[in-house]
Design a protein around this nucleic acid. Structure first.
Lengths: 212, 212
DNA sequence: CGGAATCTTGACCAAGTTCAAGCGGTGTGG
DNA sequence: CCACACCGCTTGAACTTGGTCAAGATTCCG
């Protein structure tokens, strides 16, 4: 798969103070440059990952190039386990990223933790179904920003690691629509934009009420 | 929750020849009339279910009444476990339905099987994200019909237990669009409709190529 | 400073929704 | 047994949201 030789790897001390579920046992940390693949569709599933720093996108492609981003993963969050023995999604580092890597052994040893993580992943995906199936563009963006804020402990100053294209492919929209909605939210002073990647949530209540 | 007294309950012989994952141990079978709730949002999660006969819809509601059907469950399929301790979805029998009910104990005893089921559920939801996020109406309907066919072992004669409204709420469309697309597929002789609920897949290859 | 990406904005367009009417089977009461 | 009302489904016409295409603005970097 991806040779360890071109990665920065090192022992990873247990109990790191990261949020999210923890798997025990010694494991490695690998560094990924922005845009680098963590795994590809078809690769064998033999590891799982926890983001230490940076961000990861997991997505699928249609034959004609349409892309659906299934999830983003922020520091502390686990990803990389799927049903079956081979990946059906792609995972890539969005920015410079460091990942804690867990091998097959520590996965099998702690199936209870894995169950919790799998159930959380299912819940997340099902929540997202509601957004894609039944919410309009503004609601999608609002839900996205509110979710990002929540996942960082309710911060109001968001640094978006992902591009407009990533957001569009996550929300089932186009970059133009994402951009227009951001502008509209800015005009209504629900958010402020220092630059495209730096969002300041000015009225969290207004943002939440847009999520329905 | 739902009192056992108004249910038909009986001992359920193990190893029933149903497709899908099996959990061991004695359990009960309950009967549900069309439209009856299996559980509601907020109910404690203390059981899980396997469809014996009939069909179940699992869905979520927005405050303004918009509904997103997250999944349908056909004979042999398991449902009812979620992250956390309380349901965040509703589950209802679509038609007259019989369910095998598993208690908390048999759930905890076999977390490995549960893990597989949870991972399968996650995969299913993520697959559906692609449909809702990136496919047009015809592709959604085609994917839906092909999926139903697959889940029944590739049969070409489908009896749809669910209404057009259920399908619409599953695919993020309106009943009118579902109806129009069905008509269009019929005109192209990809399918034949004896009546609204009986679909005959005439050209499975054509249907699949519409799914992309 | 120049060039490439990324993002924003505008004008037009199309897919799907909304609204409204009609169809067809089913069940009920006269 | 028929008339009628009801429900789920289909169809048509007008409309709206978001997509497409194209042109600028901004940022990021070498």
């Amino acid at each position: 798969m991806y040779a360890a030789s071109n990665l920065t790897e090192q022992r990873f001390a247990q109990s790191h103070g990261l949020s999210g579920a923890q798997l025990p046992g010694p494991h490695l940390v690998s560094s990924y440059k922005a845009g680098r693949a963590v795994y590809a569709e078809g690769d064998a599933i033999d590891k799982c990952y926890q983001v230490a720093t940076g961000a990861v996108r997991v997505y699928r492609l249609l034959s004609d190039g349409r892309r659906q981003v299934v999830s983003f993963h922020l520091p502390g969050e686990m990803f990389g386990f799927e049903a079956g023995s081979n990946h059906r999604f792609f995972a890539e580092a969005i920015t410079e990223t460091r990942l804690a890597v867990f091998g097959r052994r520590s996965m099998h040893e702690r199936s209870q933790e894995l169950l919790d993580i799998a159930l959380a992943g299912m819940a997340r995906a099902q929540e997202h179904l509601l957004v894609l199936g039944r919410q309009c563009a503004v609601e999608r963006i609002a839900a996205f920003l509110a979710d990002l804020s929540d996942r960082q402990g309710g911060v109001r100053q968001l640094r978006l690691p992902m591009s407009r294209q990533d957001i569009a492919d996550y929300l089932g929209l186009t970059i133009e629509t994402v951009s227009r909605v951001m502008t509209k939210l800015k005009e209504r002073s629900v958010i402020a934009l220092r630059d495209a990647r730096t969002v300041n949530i000015m009225r969290l209540d207004a943002l939440r009420s847009l999520c329905h």
